[in-house]
Every structure is written in C-alpha cells, then in structure tokens.
Design a protein around this nucleic acid. Structure first.
Lengths: 420, 420
DNA sequence: CTGCTTGTTTCATGACCTGAACGGACGTCG
DNA sequence: CGACGTCCGTTCAGGTCATGAAACAAGCAG
C-alpha cells in the first residue's frame, strides 16, 4: 500500500494521464470518444484537452464528418512537442537514437567501444556526446528533449545514482546515472537492455495489446523480461528475470556462471555450439565468430547437427514451460539473435516441446510468438522510458514555474489549427 | 495503465485508505503522527478520522501524555466494527473461522468432506452452513460480517463466478463464487489456498515488513506464492506460481502430472518417499500415511535415508535458487508440512544448496526463512481477503456502476476521415 | 432561412484538501 | 493558585477540481 496522500492535483494529473494515454495509444480520437472510453465528463475532457492543446502537447488533426451533425475534431499527441533519446550500451558499440513523440526515428549516432571492459567514463562520454549529436543532427532544441533513456546489459539499481552491475562489460557498481546527470540537465533513465527490448516489443512488436507477457531472449546469454499487468516486473533489486541461470538439468553441463545444468549451458548460443562440437568431432573450431558458426550449424545437414538442434528445441521448450508455469503469461515472445534463428525454423517444434513440459491449463492460456523488432529496438525501448514517464504524469508542464496562458491565446490557437 | 478516471470521491477514498492502513498496521497512533507520516494536513486527518469514528470504524484508545502539552489521543481500528470469516477447503475437511478486525479468532467450525472428489454442492453447503455457525457461535450480527474469504487448493479465475479448477478435489470449472453468492449476501472472495497462506505469512508471519517475497510450499504437492511489491502475483489467469511442475531434471523422474523431471517429483513428499523406497529395498511400503512415513524417514539413521535427504536438500536448493533468480525476492519463506519438517533440520544446508545454484547477487539480496504460522493459517489468510478490500477502499463501499464503453464494442466509425 | 442533429464549451454547483486562526488540555513557574 | 507556554485538535475561509445542464457551434436537409 502506498502510504501517500492524494491531493486534488494528483487527481488532475491522473485524469490528464488517462486522456493522454488513450490519445497516444489509440490514435486520433475525438473528445466525445475520449469521454466515453474514460468515463470522464465531456466538460472535463474539454477542459483537460484544452489545457494540453494550449501547452502544445496535444494538437487537432483534421476532423471526421458525423451523420448530419457537427463534425468531430480528432486529437493526437503533437509529435513535435518534445523528443526522446534512447541509447543502447552494447558489448561493442554505443548506439544513440532520437525519436519524436510519434516514435519516429529522427537521428542516429554510433560509437565503437572496447570489446573487453570498457572504461565507464568513456562510455558516459560517448553517451553524452551522442545525446548532443543526435539533437543537433535532428535540428532539435535541446530543451525539447524530454528524457534520455539508456539501456545496459546488466542489472541497474533503482536508486538515484542508478548503479550498474554488468558482468559482460566488467562493471561492478558503476554509478552511471550520477555520471550522466553530471553532464546533462535532461532527465536520465537507465535500465537493463533486455527489459527495454521487452518494453519495445510490448508497445510496438509482438506484445501489443497484451498485459501479461514474458519476453524470452536467447543469444550468447539467455534472459527474460517479465511484464506483469503492463509493467515490467523488477523484483526487490531489479535483477528479476535471470532465466538463463535457472537449473534445468540438475547436475548437468557446467555453465560459464560456474554452476551445473543452467538453461544457458544448453540453449545459449555458446552452449549449443559446444554441444555441437562434442557431437561433431570438434568442428567448427572454437574461437570463430559465434553468429557465423551458429548459422553454419543451422545450415548443416549432418546427423550430429540434427540431434543437437532437436535437443536444443527440447531444452528450450522446457525452459519456456517453466516460465509459463511460474508466470502464467498471456504470451511468450521469443527473441534474441539465436532465439530468432531457432524460432524461424523450429517454432512449431518449440511450441510442441513447451506443451509437453508445461501444465495444460497455463499452456492453453498462452501463445508463443517471435520478436517482431530487430535487435536495434533496444535503443527504441530505452526511449520508451521517458515516454512512459510522460504518459504516467500526464505531460505535466516542464517548467514548474507557472507559465500562465493568456485566455485570449487559446481560441486563436484553436482557430489556427483548424485553418490548416 | 488503468484507463480510468479519478474523481473527487476517489481522492477521499484513497486518503481514507491511507489513514486506515496506517492505523491498522502501525497500531494505535495519534492524529498528529498520522498527519506526519501520510503528509496529509492535520485538518484533513481530523476530518477523515472524525468521519471514520462517527461510522464506528475507528475508535479512540486512551491517550499518551506529551511533554507538557495536551495529551495525544490514540486511534485504532475498532475491532468490533465488523467481522471477517475465512474458510479453507482442504482435501479432507472444510474449516471455517471468524475473526474480528484485530484478527483475533472468535469462532471456529469444521466439516469433514469426502476424500476423493467431493461434490461441489456439498462443499458449498458446508461453507454456507459454517458461515452461519461461526456467526452465531461468536454472537455476531450477520450484517456485521464484512466478507467471506474462501481458500481452495486449485486455481481460481478472477471472474464474477470465481470458477475453480482443482485437480486434487477433482473439480473442473466449478463456479464456486456463483454458488456461494446464491446463498448469502455477504461479499464472497475466493482464492487459491497457497496464496492465502502466503498472504497470512506476509501479514503476520515470516514475511512481515517485506514487499517482495516468495512463499515456497512443500507438502505432498509443491507450489509457491509470489508477492511482488506487497500484492500477490497472479499472472494472466491466476495460475502463476506453479513451481512444483517446473522442470529441474530434464528427462528425469516421472511426475504424477505426467511430465519428466518436475521439481515435485524430487522434493514433494511423495517423490521423496519414492526415492527412499528405491534406495531402501522397498520400505516403508507404499500406501501408509504419507506424513507418518515421512517422519520415519527423517528419524531413520540408515545410509539410504541420509543419501535421499541429502539429495532432496540439493534439489530443493536448486528449486529455491530458480525462484531467487527469476523473482529476485527479498525473502523466501519455506513452508508446507514437508518443507517445514525438512527446514527445521536442514535449513543451513538448504541455504547452502541455494547459494550454490543461485546467482551471487540475487542470492545475497534475499534471506531464507521458515513459515511461522501453522497450516491453519490458510483460513486466516482467506479472511485477509475481505480485510485487504476494506483497507484498500478505506472502508467506503465501492462506486457501483461504471459507465465505461469498452474500446472493442464502440460503434464502428461510419464516417470517413476527411483530410483538412 | 429554418429546423434538426451532433459535437464542444460555458456555467453554477458541490466535494474536497489546505493553511491559518482558534480553542482545549496539561504542566510549570512565579 | 492563577498566568503562561506547549502541544493537540477543530473550525473556517479560500482555492482546485469534476460534473450535469444549458448554451453555443457547425454541418445537413428541406
């Protein structure tokens, strides 16, 4: 229970949020429809929408004729009201991307980083530089950037400093949030890359319209992003969803985390290739590019390859079934480069393997799909972080100093919008 | 995003809820303290508390002298304002219990039921009869019973009919909610027994003060109750937490659910005894009372028993580790009759086994404890269901009708959009 | 131009929280 | 023993907000 009072201002914020959400999600809508679907009175809709139009957050977008009456005016979120920047700190590069409020990409920048243990300060510099670069490239006023979302492949503490622990980057306790905030006034949001990719799939990809889902990511590593009732499940310290290191073969193969029988040791790309090498007289030799070797395995027609892939599908099905049993999602979205490659060829078999291992009822209530967005969606997912905040707060005016709108400017603005 | 408006009434309800929660959870408090911890103005505290006192929901409970000033009057929830009835539909009996608002048990009733596939109508009759019986036994006006919480060992759909699927009872699609509501006007709440027991542990047992926890229950069956941010995690169709049938030994022992390698086949009481029989030349013979046989195993000094128990601790640790990795809880509470029996003797070993299988970071952020309430707490947990509703609504009846038009049923736009 | 239908805005009203002033209870000190 | 200070609780004027009803606006058909 949130032991927090509610004031009359919270009420207004909440109602603005409800309206803004509907307008943003369900495309252009008239005030009438807004009133019906939110149960707000038309008077309030008009009042709140008028305020948001005056602020430039919402705009009128043409009109639709109704049966003989006054045409309804459609409303949409003004794409140019503000901009969102998302960044993906990957293992080999930092990618920064700028979006408008319609989530259209407007500028992009990329910086290579050291493959092993990049210095956090260098990464922060790249991120801040990228933020400036995309802003300039898109010709956007930096003051119009509503937020900067950053995705990293590790766990992120939900504290003010946003301390990052990332094994793959060799980071332990890097206060990335504090470092970035020292270099920009734009609000910074940091989260795990799997979670932002999952969020992107939920909003724009295979998870659209679903409230409970698990996005299962299989690449070199194996992870999951759990979405419960529309919001990412984090757990006590934001490290929930460590699917890859759940035990699936008690006492089985050794995983790179040191334990025995982790799922990742069986369905992670490295684990699959290892098993293939064992069954295929050591070929392909270790050390080659993992994605190339994995493609080779998929194209291979040998018996060893078939066996390894069959086994993989079985293990993966059991792993997905564990997610289905524990989380009871409406949908499982399979992604990650290896997961997609497997899924494109073996999705029916993966479904069947899941059905074998899951309880009937939860399995019947779920559907298993493939990710629809590419791996670049990590940055877009990061950009959804400030967007989510905007929607949650109902787009509260950026300057807390009350900027009074003269009553005379409102009708003028409306008239201009219509004249377009 | 809850696409729901907020009205002035919601605000008042929310503020009453905040106050009521604090008064109920943190014992007697003065108005002053309430104002400070909730950030509500003293004026509002006074106003809202006055209303609740007038309704009889809150009462003054003595006073405490302050340093030379007017003594502060303490407030508490009036225990006799209303009563809560909780019921547990077990495999052999229906137990019904009545509590006052201080959660003191005031009356109890129990009815044996058929061990195999009891008729739902009989169970409903017992439940309704028990409701009357405890009400009369405690000398309570039936109108003062705020709600009737019922726990069943199966999944419960969150619909108006509260359809129950319970394999152990042989129930498939029993609309228990509708059946009970036909026999009483008291608001009925139905939920899974593991979840109500977990809720009881969270409020009054080993989970006090924790917001993220997993209550792991090991008996004949194996299940878990996940609590995320203070509320039970349900998933899309309320069957989340099916921990017992997650695969932990791929291709391992056959489980009674039909799959291979489920956790329940290794750490459920039946699975443990089966493994013991295999290692101990068939003794104790199958068919005896499970709890007796299990106690025998625990007391046994033979080598076979030691091995089986050692193995069990390992499997259990791996299973708990999976929960820790996936849910990242602050605490894992181990319960169930077999889980408690194991835990009382092997808790350090179980902790060690969990540490071996879990990732370091999530493991370091969690603590593993034993349940502190007996198995009878299932009924008490069921009684927390109406209590939770009372606290959430601040003791105000919910607004009845919502004139919301679901987006899907909206009339199709006949008019064409006109470019302007 | 007049009626008709439909969409949007205005207005008076009532519910609510808040800060500030007011009143009440208790101990202490002259 | 009474005045005073301190701390607690209540009352009141003021401001914010959503709402239903009524008014206003914009198109169409006679």
């Amino acid at each position: 229970m949130d032991a927090r009072r509610t004031t009359v201002r919270d009420m207004r914020r909440a109602n603005r949020s409800v309206l803004l959400n509907r307008i943003w999600l369900d495309g252009p809508l008239s005030r009438h429809e807004l009133g019906q679907t939110t149960a707000l009175s038309l008077a309030s809709v008009s009042n709140l929408v008028g305020e948001m139009i005056a602020e430039g957050l919402v705009e009128e977008a043409g009109s639709v004729e109704s049966d003989g009456g006054r045409p309804r005016v459609l409303l949409r979120v003004a794409p140019g009201y503000g901009y969102l920047v998302g960044a993906d700190v990957g293992e080999t590069r930092v990618q920064v991307e700028l979006f408008d409020l319609a989530m259209t990409a407007r500028a992009k920048a990329e910086y290579p980083i050291a493959a092993t243990g990049p210095d956090p300060r260098d990464v922060a510099t790249h991120l801040l530089h990228g933020l400036d670069a995309v802003t300039e490239q898109a010709g956007v006023d930096p003051a119009a950037v509503l937020g900067f979302g950053v995705a990293v492949s590790g766990t992120v503490e939900r504290t003010a400093d946003a301390v990052v622990h990332a094994q793959t980057l060799g980071w332990a306790g890097v206060p990335l949030g504090a470092m970035l905030r020292a270099g920009t006034d734009i609000p910074v949001h940091i989260d795990n890359g799997a979670k932002t990719l999952g969020q992107a799939e939920m909003w724009f990809g295979a998870g659209r319209g679903v409230r409970h889902a698990v996005v299962a990511l299989v690449g070199s590593g194996v992870g999951a992003c759990v979405v419960a009732d529309g919001v990412g499940y984090r757990g006590a310290h934001s490290s929930a969803g460590e699917w890859g290191h759940t035990t699936i073969v008690y006492g089985g193969r050794r995983c790179r985390c040191g334990n025995l029988g982790c799922l990742e040791a069986y369905v992670g790309a490295e684990g699959i290739l290892d098993r293939f090498r064992q069954a295929n007289r050591g070929r392909p030799a270790a050390g080659a590019d993992e994605e190339t070797a994995f493609g080779e395995l998929l194209r291979s027609t040998g018996r060893a390859a078939a066996t390894v892939l069959d086994d993989t599908v079985g293990y993966l099905g059991a792993g997905v079934a564990n997610l289905v049993n524990l989380f009871n999602p409406e949908r499982v979205v399979l992604g990650g480069w290896a997961g997609l490659a497997l899924g494109e060829r073996y999705l029916p078999q993966i479904r069947a393997a899941t059905a074998r291992h899951a309880l009937r009822q939860p399995y019947a209530q779920t559907s298993i799909e493939l990710c629809r967005l590419g791996p670049d969606a990590v940055a877009m997912g990061a950009a959804t972080l400030p967007m989510a905040r905007l929607l949650r707060d109902g787009g509260v005016p950026r300057e807390p100093a009350a900027r009074v709108v003269p009553a005379s400017t409102r009708p003028v603005q409306r008239a201009r919008a219509r004249a377009r």
